[in-house]
Design a protein around this nucleic acid. Structure first.
Length: 521
RNA sequence: GAUUUGGUAGCUCAGCUGGUAGAGCAUCUCCCUUUUAAGGAGAGGGUCCUGGGUUCGAGUCCCAGCCAAAUCACCA
């Protein structure tokens, strides 16, 4: 904290920042509070006026708007300016003798022309009209300073042909100062509005279906439900280590044991692993568990959910992604993992043992190591040779048992599990099971994970004794599904970087200057 | 973690084989009552990411470091 504060203090003010501080002081000297406390009685939005103003009706005859001043064209006693509020921008016309009715022209000549600048919040009262060039504008009768801005905003302009001039496009600055990015770059806000639509569409679908949104612990004594490296923290009063959740699966299943028919959670998960364009240390997964269902039912349910999401965001099931068009119209293609591998490699893995698989991998040019068990080997073949073929939404079903320690054994084949993953654009989007509810089988699966851990697989799962105790009380047949929300939003917003769909992606702190300060102390 | 590319004014970017730091927008001053990516004219503004080195001289060349992006490896 202190280090960050020092960076701010050490920062030297630029010419423009000094100018703005002087303007601020002068406003105060004129008796104008640059940060007034009183509410401002806004009665319209910029977009509303632009969309709904009618020159014949002369509606919006007493309009009151507030927002940031985003551009000014000052021409002597008359000026045009752009006001931006949450809905968009509208042009405003200022006339010296109309905003200053008496002899004193200070409000126009000094306050508006000299002391206000781009980025400042102002309030205006006036009436809507159309200029000679036909642009809907506000004829301003009254101007109020609402908040002074001390830093110059980047000026991004779009011309008549849609070309963007002087874009604020350095990704580092855009992510570190997302507030600026949101203000000046068109389309950034849209991504997050779409993200919100994705979430609402899912929530609405689940609620309509009668399932309940729940909250489960983020701080967990045993990080379970997935194979990943957790963040470790410490609770002082209890004097125990705690882990930030890597998944919420085991807690949601405890709630099914506790008698709920269906529970879901938008779960912020944390994994202490690498970062790249598809991985942020914290990310969001939606998980849902429904009693008395199986994975076949869940495939139908997932299809419907995704179709509804696409419709909510785009109004159609056809979604452009890069140079592809993805179709989220039901039903999606379904293929078993064994058939998929057969189709793309010609190898039939059914009944093959660990050595056979290891040889198959070698023949296919896939590198293997000693820690890999049967499941991991099959997974390697699939991800190397098959996964990238599935561009359109496709369910891959019936994964090998060793890869799925929380999943129920397949009803027709003991070496498989009742699991599916949904592949879109060559990547995994969702993952679902007929959940394992046999407590003795579950204990054995955990013990196998323990062996994998001993062989050097650092992703193997920990044994959660309390979860096993819950299963021993009895869990009904249940199907569960998890979907990577950030990944889904990426697909729905045509983004290839997770940072574009998170407001504040994780960044390494900038400390260069602070270090110098510290050594000087 | 590896490789590649980049970091110059508030923003976007030039800056050649090493020789006084440049442009557009923004800012400031002056002029101007319906303009529109930018009304007209003029002026000011720099820790060239940081620290070393080579050199008479480094934004430029070399070394180390910091930050970011892209590609690859691992995970969702």
């Amino acid at each position: 904290m202190r280090e960050i504060f020092k960076i701010v203090m050490a920062h030297q003010l630029s010419e423009q920042e000094i100018q703005r501080r002087e303007d601020l002081q002068q406003l105060r000297e004129l008796g104008i509070d640059p940060y007034p406390a009183a509410l401002y009685p806004v009665n319209a939005k910029a977009k509303q006026v632009v969309d709904e103003y009618n020159d014949d009706e002369k509606n919006f005859s007493e309009v009151c708007l507030a927002g940031r001043l985003m551009s000014r064209r000052i021409m002597g006693k008359a000026s045009f300016a752009e006001l931006m509020d949450s809905s968009g921008r509208i042009q405003c016309y200022f006339n010296r003798d109309e905003i200053c009715e008496g002899e004193d022209k200070t409000l126009y000549n000094t306050v508006f022309k000299k002391l206000l600048g781009i980025g400042d919040f102002i309030g205006i009262k006036g009436y809507a009209f159309k200029t000679q060039t036909g642009q809907t504008s506000i004829h301003v009768k009254e101007l109020t300073v609402l908040a002074k801005s001390l830093k110059p905003l980047p000026i991004v302009k779009t011309d008549a042909d849609g070309n963007v001039h002087d874009a604020f496009n350095d990704p580092e600055q855009r992510y570190r100062q997302r507030y600026v990015d949101l203000l000046v770059n068109k389309g950034v806000k849209d991504v997050f509005i779409k993200r919100n639509k994705v979430i609402s569409a899912m929530r609405q679908f689940f609620d309509e279906s009668g399932y309940m949104e729940v909250e489960t612990p983020v701080l967990q004594p045993i990080p379970g439900g997935a194979a990943a490296r957790p963040f470790i923290t410490h609770h002082n009063a209890l004097d125990i280590p705690l882990y930030m959740r890597i998944a919420n699966e085991l807690y949601l299943k405890r709630l099914i044991v506790g008698g709920f028919d269906g529970v879901y959670e938008f779960s912020r998960n944390f994994r202490n692993e690498g970062m790249d364009r598809t991985h942020n240390p914290e990310f969001t997964v939606m998980e849902i568990y429904v009693a008395y269902k199986d994975y076949n039912w869940m495939m139908d349910f997932t299809e419907e959910m995704i179709e509804r999401v696409a419709l909510a965001v785009h109004g159609t099931t056809e979604v452009k992604f890069g140079d592809k068009t993805l179709s989220f119209q039901r039903p999606f293609k379904r293929i078993s993992m064994t058939d998929s591998i057969k189709e793309h490699t010609g190898v039939d893995i059914s009944g093959m043992d660990e050595d056979g698989l290891r040889n198959a991998c070698k023949q296919l040019g896939i590198s293997v190591d000693k820690s890999m068990g049967r499941g991991k080997l099959i997974d390697e073949i699939f991800s190397e040779k098959c996964e990238h073929h599935y561009i359109q939404p496709t369910f891959i079903t019936d994964y090998p048992k060793e890869m799925s320690p929380l999943c129920k054994m397949h009803r027709n084949d003991e070496t498989l599990t009742e699991r599916f993953e949904l592949m879109v654009n060559g990547n995994e989007l969702a993952n679902a099971y007929s959940e394992l509810n046999d407590p003795i089988d579950q204990r054995e699966r955990f013990e196998e994970q323990l062996k994998l851990m001993e062989r050097g697989d650092d992703e193997a799962m920990f044994i959660d004794q309390d979860f096993l105790r819950a299963l021993e009380y009895g869990m009904p047949p249940t199907s569960g599904m998890g979907i990577g929300l950030d990944r889904l939003v990426m697909l729905m917003t045509n983004n290839t970087s997770i940072q574009e769909v998170l407001f504040f992606p994780q960044m390494r702190p900038q400390i260069g200057k602070a270090k110098q300060e510290e050594t000087a102390e």
